[in-house]
Amino acid sequence: MITKNRKITFILSLISAIIGIMFAIQLKSNMNPVPNESRSIAELRSSLQKELEKHKGLLADISKYNLLFYQYESSLNEGDSVSVMKEELARAKRMAGMVGLEGEGTVVRIQDAVIPEPPPLSDLEEHSYIPNAVIDEDLRWLSNILFANGAKAISINGHRIIATTAIRNVGEDIQIDTKTIRPPYEIKALGDPDVLISGLKLEGAEENLKLAGKQLIIEKHDKLLIPAYTDARVIRFMKPVKTKGES
């Protein structure tokens, strides 16, 4: 009788201890639903980097305008001031793409892929590929890759791409702004050629266009001339903001 009693006591203690532990754990896990909202350090670091870059850009802008202001103020006569203004105009035009630029860069040519020998018939039937035409998105995509890799200026078949340039399919052809361009397409980009080329390779531009039956020919150039945007654009809608701007 006593031994039985002991046993029951023992079992009971064990069970209740387990229950107690379970309670405690449940309570713990219910009480704090771990506030793990902290973003990764890497991400924070990259946003800090962006801010620092912006800071640098702003400082550069400010010093430029400071210099300009100083130049205006210190010009001895009106002729001097006008020449300062002319310089400023040249700079703004360069940024707008209304001035031709020269420097190192790459030329990307899109050509029909040369098929070395006609593949066997069965093969042909299997992947009976049709050489597609290059479409507007291809050109937009390529120039976007180039810009993302630091291209300063781009022209396609001699037409300079500026902030408002549209590249679109019109019927069979591709138009840049309102000018029709015809294959072979040639994209000229100003920038560090190695960076530009590796950017294209990284994106798989060659492979992608191979699927369309095209071949990319990429060349490095030490001296490349990107023409100016020549159309006269009439500004009808936008006006510079001159009010006290709270950005």
């Binding site: 001031s81 940024m95 707008a96 902030a163 809608f237 006006k239 950005s247």
Partner: peptide, 24 residues
């Protein structure tokens, strides 16, 4: 002369995107 250049300059700046702009 400055007036002529200024209008050109303003247009170029707007197109270059170095000044804030507004409009419809």
């Amino acid at each position: 002369e400055a007036a002529e250049i200024l209008s050109e300059l303003e247009a170029a700046r707007m197109m270059a995107g170095v000044v804030p702009v507004s409009g419809p």
